[in-house]
C-alpha cells in the first residue's frame, strides 16, 4: 500500500477509505435531490405554481430552490465523489476561490442582457417600454437578425 503514496512532494497520506457505504449514501442523496428537482421542473411545466403571467414571485422562488438544490448536488459531487473534501485547506481554496468569479460573471452578464433588451424595446429610451411582451410575435426581431 505504501509504495503508491510515498512521494517527496506528499508529506502525509490520506487514511484509506474503509467501505463504499459513504459513496452509496451520497448516491441516494444525489438521486433524491434530482427527483425533487425534476418534480419542481415538471410542476413549472404543468403550471402547478400558477400561470406564468400571474404568479411571478412564486415561480421565481421555485427556480431559486432548483438553483440551490443544484449547488448542493455540486457540493456533494465535488467534495465526496471527486475527493476535494479530503484535501488540505490550501488545495480546496485554490480551486473554490477562483470559481467565486462566477457570482460576478452571472450577475454582470445577465444584467447586460436585460439592459440590451430594454434598450431595444425602447429604442434606447426614446419611447416607453411595453411592459410584458409574452404574446408579442418574435417575427420582426428575427427578420432583422
Amino acid at each position: 500500500m505504501s509504495e503508491h503514496v510515498s512521494s517527496a512532494e506528499i508529506t502525509f497520506a490520506h487514511a484509506p477509505s474503509e467501505g463504499t457505504g459513504r459513496i452509496w449514501k451520497i448516491f441516494w442523496v444525489l438521486s433524491f435531490i434530482t427527483v425533487v428537482e425534476l418534480l419542481l421542473g415538471f410542476g413549472l411545466a404543468k403550471h402547478w405554481f400558477g400561470e406564468p403571467e400571474k404568479s411571478h414571485s412564486l415561480i421565481l422562488a421555485v427556480k431559486g430552490v432548483i438553483c440551490i438544490l443544484s449547488l448542493a448536488k455540486a457540493f456533494y459531487i465535488v467534495s465526496v465523489f471527486m475527493h476535494l473534501g479530503d484535501e488540505i485547506r490550501n488545495m480546496i481554496m485554490t480551486i473554490v476561490v477562483p470559481l467565486c468569479l462566477f457570482i460576478w460573471f452571472i450577475g454582470a452578464f445577465l444584467w447586460d442582457g436585460n439592459s440590451w433588451k430594454n434598450l431595444r424595446n425602447t429604442n434606447a429610451g426614446s419611447r416607453p417600454a411595453k411592459t410584458e411582451q409574452h404574446q408579442q410575435p418574435a417575427v420582426d426581431k428575427d427578420a432583422k437578425k
Binding site: 471527486m82 476535494l84 488545495m91 485554490t94 480551486i95 477562483p98 470559481l99 462566477f102 460573471f105 452571472i106 452578464f109 445577465l110 447586460d112 442582457g113 436585460n114 440590451w116 433588451k117 431595444r120 424595446n121 411582451q133 409574452h134 408579442q136 418574435a138 426581431k141
Partner: peptide
C-alpha cells in the same frame, strides 16, 4: 484540478453567454 477548473470556466462561459442572449430577447 486546474484542468477541471478550466473546464468549469469553459462551460460556465458558454452557459452565461446563452443566459445573456436569452435575457436580451422578448421570447
Amino acid at each position: 484540478w486546474y484542468f477541471l477548473m478550466s473546464d468549469a470556466f469553459t462551460f460556465g462561459a458558454f452557459l452565461i453567454s446563452y443566459g445573456t442572449i436569452r435575457f436580451s430577447v422578448n421570447s
